[in-house]
């Protein structure tokens, strides 16, 4: 008998361990559900971790109002199928009520507004642990993130003052009013996620697969044409066969020319591609340390 497991099974075991530790160590954990494959993976792993009990956490979705409609449909189906409670934080409402101010101009995005809405949804729900699908391979600033990431009472992350994590011992202790961000799939790469989703036959939002869409080009990136983006006069709309590599707001999620129509095609594409998945996100291009700056303020 060979007591060896594949890297995907080992990553799965590690993530399940983290999810169970969160259930044991925190009083009110929540899964931050973005609708992307990474948060879908977390929900899938949580389902396995607690089977045959239901997932003991609600799903929190920050709806910017600029989501792809496909994302919302998928989200509603998933939470219904698993019997998981869904909580929605609305950026639109925050703008309406004056708690947030919309950015103006061609590159306007509600990305920064999400932070405030997320933090107030966490506060309102009294959530003490918010699980997210961030992975360390995504971006330089994330390479040093912990599984259990401590946030102060303002929701801020201090990269210089993180708790060391050793062996399988995770320290989730905190003062009143503080909370944790938890990243159960920290050690997965984009390719691992796809390979695992394929192996498990997980149903995914249609946006990930190639489809025809009206698009236009900006700074070398294709964006989906929609009412939420102001186009410059020289930006011409055309039809292209594309797919999303990440799922975020329509305003800042680039779409890619692709014919990948199955998960296997996507794996092939990811394995041979020359660009990181965040390479298509205009929000990361603002400066070399864009992600790190947003992180310090409490972005995922």
């Amino acid at each position: 008998m060979d007591y060896n497991i594949s890297h995907l099974k080992e990553l799965e075991a590690e993530s399940i361990f983290i999810l169970r530790d969160v259930a044991a160590q925190f009083e009110r954990p929540v899964i931050m559900f973005s609708g992307g494959k990474d948060s879908i993976l977390i929900v899938h792993l949580a389902h396995k971790a607690f089977y045959p009990a239901k997932i003991p956490f609600p799903l929190l979705h920050v709806d910017t109002g600029h989501n792809f409609p496909e994302t919302l449909e998928y989200r509603d189906n998933l939470s219904e199928r698993l019997g998981a409670k869904l909580i929605i934080g609305s950026v639109e409402e925050a703008i309406q009520s004056g708690q947030a101010v919309e950015e103006k101009g061609v590159n306007a995005s509600r990305n920064m507004l999400q932070i405030g809405v997320l933090l107030s949804a966490l506060e309102k729900g009294k959530f003490d642990a918010a699980m997210g699908g961030a992975r360390r391979d995504e971006e330089k600033a994330r390479a040093k993130e912990r599984f259990f990431s401590h946030r102060d009472e303002f929701g801020q992350w201090d990269p210089k003052n993180q708790r060391p994590e050793l062996w399988n011992l995770f320290n989730g202790r905190k003062q009143m009013g503080e909370h944790f961000r938890i990243f159960p799939i920290s050690n997965w790469t984009e390719l691992d996620v796809w390979q695992y989703l394929a192996m498990e036959n997980v149903e995914l939002p249609s946006l990930y697969f190639s489809h025809q869409r009206e698009v236009f080009e900006r700074d070398g990136t294709l964006l989906a044409d929609c009412d939420y983006i102001l186009k410059r006069p020289d930006e011409k709309v055309f039809t292209e066969t594309v797919r999303c590599r990440t799922i975020g707001d329509m305003t800042c999620t680039g779409v890619w020319k692709s014919n990948a129509s199955t998960v296997e095609d996507i794996i092939e594409e990811v394995a041979t591609t020359r660009m990181t998945e965040r390479g298509g996100r205009t929000d990361d291009k603002r400066s070399e340390t864009a992600m790190e700056d947003r992180k310090k303020e409490g972005y995922f």
Binding site: K140, K160, S186, N187, D192
Partner: peptide
């Protein structure tokens, strides 16, 4: 492999950073 801003400024690495790569035989952390 240079991580955070403060380190890039000082030109040194000050915390554990995790990197990933894989070959057909193994995945490495």
């Amino acid at each position: 492999t240079d991580g955070l801003k403060s380190e890039r400024e000082q030109g040194i690495t000050i915390d554990v950073a995790y990197r990933y790569f894989s070959t057909p035989k193994r995945k490495f952390i």
